[in-house]
């Protein structure tokens, strides 16, 4: 039983990071219908920005994380103005946008590789400090992830449900044309969406870099598949869905290794496989995802 509780705690940690990254991807998809394959690289970019502050400049990682969010938001907005908007204006279709995003992912990943090299890097924090909460043992970094994720999740929920900006984002993801007829400046809301989505990606990258202890430029690519799985699981284009999808995925992956399960649980090497089995099962029984709604015409 204690083992299960521990696994659930670990699952919440993994799931929180996936969820934070997936919300960003889902917001952008909802509004621009861009499947951004470079989203994983936005995470890596954030992780390295925090590294610069924390290791190169010797400042605290909290400062590093804030810097990472700001810089990744700037990256997101710069790419919106310099790349996405110009090609949207030319009427690029969904496939062209997809290919551009794959190209962008390669450019970003290799730029980071050139800049920082491929060797694993770590933040300058004491990760071995362990806290015991009843039967559960969590490292400081894991606790930080859970706390930060809870704040972010509540914050995003409030943003979307309560604020005019959040409602405008949802309106845009329902119908761009109708949003503009309602007086919404769609270009402006699109820019805000990139800011929110990219900042979350930057934060997700720092958190992932923190919990996996060491990271390198390929971290984002490996996470990307899980992030996509979370978005699809929750229902494409639904930010709440992406959040739940991320958490479900994280929990499933960890709990599947429980030794009380038949055959002693899944070998932890195969955790990602579990994620995709869950995804496939959900898609068979609920093709629109947990929170998605069947499209009505």
């Amino acid at each position: 039983m204690n083992e299960l509780l521990q696994l659930i705690a670990n699952g919440l940690v993994t799931g929180s990071i996936i969820a934070i990254a997936a919300i960003g991807l889902s917001l952008v998809y909802g509004i621009l219908k861009i499947v951004n394959f470079a989203h994983g690289e936005y995470l890596v970019f954030g992780a390295y920005m925090a590294l610069v502050v924390n290791v190169t400049w010797g400042q605290s990682l909290v400062l590093g994380a804030l810097f990472a969010m700001i810089m990744t938001a700037l990256l997101g907005i710069a790419l919106e103005f310099g790349l996405w908007r110009p090609i949207r204006r030319r009427g690029a279709g969904i496939v062209s946008l997809l290919i551009v995003s794959i190209g962008l992912a390669l450019v970003l990943r290799n730029s980071i590789l050139l800049w920082q090299g491929g060797a694993p890097r770590r933040y300058d924090v004491d990760v071995f400090q362990v806290y015991e909460l009843g039967p559960i043992r969590l490292s400081l970094s894991q606790i930080v992830v859970i706390v930060v994720a809870s704040v972010v999740i509540v914050g995003i929920g409030l943003l979307l449900a309560r604020t005019t900006l959040g409602k405008a984002m949802r309106a845009l993801s329902d119908s761009r044309d109708l949003a503009s007829v309602s007086g919404i400046d769609t270009d402006r809301i699109t820019a805000y969406t990139w800011i929110v989505g990219s900042a979350l990606a930057g934060l997700g990258g720092v958190l992932q870099g923190l919990v996996q202890n060491a990271f390198e430029p390929n971290m984002g690519f490996r996470l990307l598949l899980l992030i996509f799985a979370a978005v699809i699981l929750g229902g494409v284009g639904s930010a709440y869905g992406a959040l739940v999808g991320g958490l479900v995925l994280g929990l499933m992956m960890e709990v599947s290794t429980w030794s009380a399960l038949p055959a002693g649980g899944v070998d932890s090497v195969y955790k990602p496989v579990v994620a995709f089995v869950v995804l496939i099962l959900v898609l068979i029984f609920r093709p629109q995802g947990i929170f998605g709604r069947a499209r009505t015409v």
Partner: peptide, 24 residues
């Protein structure tokens, strides 16, 4: 203002939220 023939409401928002968007 303009009412489209099709897709003229925000389907995933409530009635009230649709009206709020009208008052954006």
């Amino acid at each position: 203002n303009y009412v489209f023939q099709l897709d003229n409401v925000f389907p995933n928002m409530t009635v009230r939220e649709n009206l709020e968007m009208g008052a954006y």
